[in-house]
Design a protein around this nucleic acid. Sequence first.
DNA 1: CAGAGACTCGAGGAG
DNA 2: CGAGTCTCTG
Length: 738
Amino acid sequence: MNLIEGLNHKQKEAVLQTKGPLLILAGAGSGKTRVLTHRIAYLIQEEDVLPWKILAITFTNKAAKEMRERVDTLVGQGSDEIWVSTFHSACVRILRRDIEKIGYNRYFTIYDTADQKTLIRECLKELNYNEKNFPVGSILGEISSQKNELITAKEYDKQSRGDYRREKISHIYKLYQKKLESNNALDFDDIIFKTVELFTYHPDVLDYYQNRFEYIMVDEYQDTNTAQYKLVKSLASKHGNLCVVGDDDQSIYGWRGANIRNILDFEKDFKDAKVIKLEQNYRSTKIILDAANAVIKNNYGRKQKALWTENEQGNPIEIRQTDNEHKEADFVASEIVKQIEEEAREYNDFAILYRTNAQSRVLEEHLIKHSIPYRLLGGIRFYERKEIKDILGYLRSIQNTDDDLSLKRIINVPKRGIGDTTIGKVEDYVLANDINFFNVIRDRELVSQFGRAATKLKSFADLMGGFQVQAQIGTVMELIETILDRTGYLKELENENTEESNERIQNIKELISKAADYDENAEEPSLGGFLEEVSLVADIDNYNEENNAVVLMTLHSAKGLEFPYVFITGLEEGVFPSYMSIVSEKEDAVEEERRLCYVGITRAKEKLYLCHAKSRMLRGLTQYNRLSRFVGELPKELIKMGNSPKRSADPLAGIRARNKVLENYKPYGGASLNETSAAPKKISLDYECGDIVKHIKFGVGTVEDITYAGADYEVTVTFPKFGQKKLMAGLAKLKAVK
DNA sequence: CAGAGACTCGAGGAG
DNA sequence: CGAGTCTCTG
């Protein structure tokens, strides 16, 4: 098979450039997956590279699977010998072999975000820190950023001297890490970090993989963090055949440590690196591409790129304003019905994208109302559901007896009379004697000291012992069924017989069938392997484009996908770009939002809708947000206003003028929402959030929130006697009290 | 020890 | 608004 045929000049060049460092700057829709698969096929077929000498890192398991299949069709066979996987799967595979060398054992558990939070709470309790001053989420974020930068707890501690808050956080980090180790568990960041550590302290291990991987390819390189960069660099440093593919304009994971410098500095980091730009887009219409270019050009510090296409002009971009989020959702649903009827479209031609998962609910409601089949990605993942986590808790405790966290989760689920008091007593003993929980309760002598609860603990230990035997002799599916039966978990749900409990039973059945599927199809099925697969699967991995349904997902999840019709909803300041990015002191926070917008726009092949609502209910409060600045960045000739009452020459003139004021006022970020809302000054307020004000009827109160609404401000004030009130500043005549 | 009901408080994206 | 926590009672 000729692997070069049908590729454009640049694509060919990228396939043929097999030696040395290569950076492929691949614009959206420029056929990079095609290039990567053909490149791998070319290596195997034309350059006689053994398949198992190739490592290809993709962003999702789904992409990995697809890549393997496509290589398969190109070269016939041998593709199962190639390492195609995500960073995390590749690292876990490496760690399962050699993690003993750095003080864990191979039965380690992978903790998800919920587990991490539980562990942090334990740390806070132990250190006597208040959760108010140290919110779990932000502590976790701080620790995660350190790990992404390969900074250990010890190093962080050193760097934090003199900074009171950082010192405290470093204590938490230290204890958190100690607990992970004693539970024989890794968090997501550790998976990469510990692999780098393994390579650093055990050069023989690194040497083995360096020799093995003669050719390395990394997709979505713009989203790699420092730890991943280090990993790739070490692996490639022997043969030097490293090909990375990425697009700096699609870097949207800065918040989880992705370092955009990795791609911007590639040529500096790897001497004699060759750079190939893929700039021809095969996906979108001219109009869509022009829109994407118009938005992204407002960012600074990009690599120069000029995306172009030979595709036709296409439909104008439709901008639709609605009164509120319900009307927005209704418009989207009606429009889908209309397009299906008039243009003979299928449901799976449509994608609805949004900035935050919370926005999906209303959209779902209206899709149901219109009887439109849909598939929702993201939100609560299957494996995060309570009933699933409970079962997994059992499996983890069976697999890894050091995992106290999982054991404590299920020790009283279903209820078996081992309550908080008993757990507390055992826990005290655990902490005092530096021993694991499971080791205490399976020691009949130690257990005797716990008085009345001793019998219950003993019978629980016996139950778990039985499961461990079962794990040795049967399949994963059989183990799960045994657990469900012997613990009475399923029976309890069946007795409940509510809508909720029945759904839980359905989920459990789905878990069983996933386990059965695993038992059948895995190369060497094992409990550890199953747990690993479960931990590393992403929601997007299960997205199947064959399924004829409209798909709903966040803009982040949509990366790498394409759809004929795309709706981007919630294009409002404070929603998209997000409130957090606007108030962030980080200069480029809004730029990342803009890249996200670029990603969203370039998902569309034929028609793009941009929707925004005048008001939107957020956490029980109605908010009035201005139209997103990103919409104002579109040239007028590309757009069509939805049901615009009057059709002026430039329908967005007003927005543009206002955004101009805004930019002069404070360009890109820095400005708080309240400040941006105040841009057209008609009324001036002599108070701000937090101030005490006086109202003629309600008396004295505290200003909680000020939102710009139409030509006035909506001020939220809490009065001691009357509670929280929303007042229009123009009418209420509030006076600041000094 | 378990369960029901009151209550507080939070601004995001994900492997 | 809704998830998660706290408090109270049987």
